[in-house]
Protein backbone atom coordinates (compact mmCIF):
# COMPACT_ATOMS: atom_id res chain seq x y z
CA UNK A 1 0.00 0.00 0.00
CA UNK A 2 1.67 3.22 -1.15
CA UNK A 3 0.60 6.55 0.26
CA UNK A 4 0.85 10.19 -0.70
CA UNK A 5 1.56 12.18 2.45
CA UNK A 6 0.73 15.89 2.28
CA UNK A 7 2.49 18.35 4.60
CA UNK A 8 1.32 21.99 4.70
CA UNK A 9 3.24 23.30 7.72
CA UNK A 10 6.72 24.79 7.88
CA UNK A 11 9.11 22.40 9.67
CA UNK A 12 10.24 25.45 11.66
CA UNK A 13 6.73 26.07 12.98
CA UNK A 14 5.14 22.68 13.63
CA UNK A 15 6.34 19.09 13.97
CA UNK A 16 4.10 17.63 11.25
CA UNK A 17 6.96 17.33 8.73
CA UNK A 18 9.15 15.51 11.30
CA UNK A 19 6.25 13.20 12.23
CA UNK A 20 5.58 12.52 8.57
CA UNK A 21 9.16 11.58 7.64
CA UNK A 22 9.35 9.33 10.70
CA UNK A 23 6.27 7.41 9.57
CA UNK A 24 6.51 7.41 5.78
CA UNK A 25 7.24 3.99 4.27
CA UNK A 26 9.46 3.06 1.35
CA UNK A 27 7.54 3.37 -1.92
CA UNK A 28 5.42 6.23 -0.67
CA UNK A 29 5.74 9.95 -1.40
CA UNK A 30 5.57 13.27 0.42
CA UNK A 31 4.05 16.38 -1.16
CA UNK A 32 5.12 19.66 0.45
CA UNK A 33 2.65 22.51 -0.10
CA UNK A 34 1.53 25.79 1.52
CA UNK A 35 4.14 26.56 4.26
CA UNK A 36 5.29 22.93 3.94
CA UNK A 37 7.43 24.01 0.97
CA UNK A 38 9.99 25.42 3.44
CA UNK A 39 11.00 21.80 4.12
CA UNK A 40 12.10 21.59 0.48
CA UNK A 41 14.73 24.33 0.81
CA UNK A 42 18.40 23.43 0.53
CA UNK A 43 20.66 24.23 3.47
CA UNK A 44 17.94 23.96 6.11
CA UNK A 45 17.66 21.41 8.90
CA UNK A 46 15.02 19.66 6.80
CA UNK A 47 17.39 18.92 3.91
CA UNK A 48 19.07 15.97 5.65
CA UNK A 49 15.72 14.44 6.55
CA UNK A 50 14.58 14.65 2.95
CA UNK A 51 17.80 13.09 1.68
CA UNK A 52 17.91 10.29 4.26
CA UNK A 53 14.36 9.01 3.66
CA UNK A 54 15.09 5.80 1.75
CA UNK A 55 12.87 5.00 -1.22
CA UNK A 56 10.59 7.98 -0.57
CA UNK A 57 9.90 10.54 -3.28
CA UNK A 58 9.53 14.20 -2.33
CA UNK A 59 7.53 16.77 -4.26
CA UNK A 60 6.97 20.50 -3.69
CA UNK A 61 4.08 22.55 -5.06
CA UNK A 62 5.53 25.13 -7.46
CA UNK A 63 2.85 27.83 -7.05
CA UNK A 64 3.34 27.77 -3.25
CA UNK A 65 7.14 28.07 -3.64
CA UNK A 66 6.64 31.02 -5.97
CA UNK A 67 4.12 32.68 -3.63
CA UNK A 68 6.82 32.65 -0.95
CA UNK A 69 9.53 34.04 -3.21
CA UNK A 70 11.39 30.73 -3.36
CA UNK A 71 12.95 29.89 -6.71
CA UNK A 72 13.53 26.38 -8.02
CA UNK A 73 17.32 26.74 -7.55
CA UNK A 74 16.83 26.87 -3.79
CA UNK A 75 15.08 23.50 -3.69
CA UNK A 76 16.94 20.44 -2.37
CA UNK A 77 18.24 18.06 -5.06
CA UNK A 78 15.85 15.20 -5.64
CA UNK A 79 12.74 17.18 -4.73
CA UNK A 80 10.52 17.42 -7.79
CA UNK A 81 8.49 20.58 -8.33
CA UNK A 82 4.91 19.98 -9.47
CA UNK A 83 1.90 22.18 -10.26
CA UNK A 84 -1.72 21.54 -9.21
CA UNK A 85 -2.16 19.11 -12.11
CA UNK A 86 0.83 17.20 -10.73
CA UNK A 87 -0.76 17.25 -7.25
CA UNK A 88 -3.94 15.71 -8.69
CA UNK A 89 -1.90 13.10 -10.60
CA UNK A 90 -0.02 12.13 -7.42
CA UNK A 91 -3.27 11.83 -5.45
CA UNK A 92 -4.58 9.47 -8.11
CA UNK A 93 -1.31 7.54 -8.50
CA UNK A 94 -0.88 6.57 -4.84
CA UNK A 95 -3.39 4.30 -3.09
CA UNK A 96 -4.44 6.87 -0.51
CA UNK A 97 -3.76 10.43 0.57
CA UNK A 98 -2.65 11.08 4.17
CA UNK A 99 -2.96 14.73 5.22
CA UNK A 100 -0.67 15.78 8.08
CA UNK A 101 -2.93 18.69 9.01
Amino acid sequence: MSELHTVNKSPFEKSSFDSCVEHVLEGSAVLLYEDGVYAAIRGTAAEGKVKSAQGVKFYALGPDLKARGLSGERVTDGVEIVDYAGFVDLAAEYDKVVAWV
Binding site: T6, A91, K96, V97, A99, V101
Partner: peptide, 8 residues
Amino acid sequence: ERLVVFGD
Protein backbone atom coordinates in the same frame (compact mmCIF):
# COMPACT_ATOMS: atom_id res chain seq x y z
CA GLU B 1 -11.50 6.28 -4.28
CA ARG B 2 -9.60 9.08 -2.52
CA LEU B 3 -10.44 11.44 0.33
CA VAL B 4 -8.23 14.54 0.26
CA VAL B 5 -8.26 16.68 3.42
CA PHE B 6 -7.32 20.38 3.54
CA GLY B 7 -6.95 22.10 6.91
CA ASP B 8 -4.69 23.79 9.40
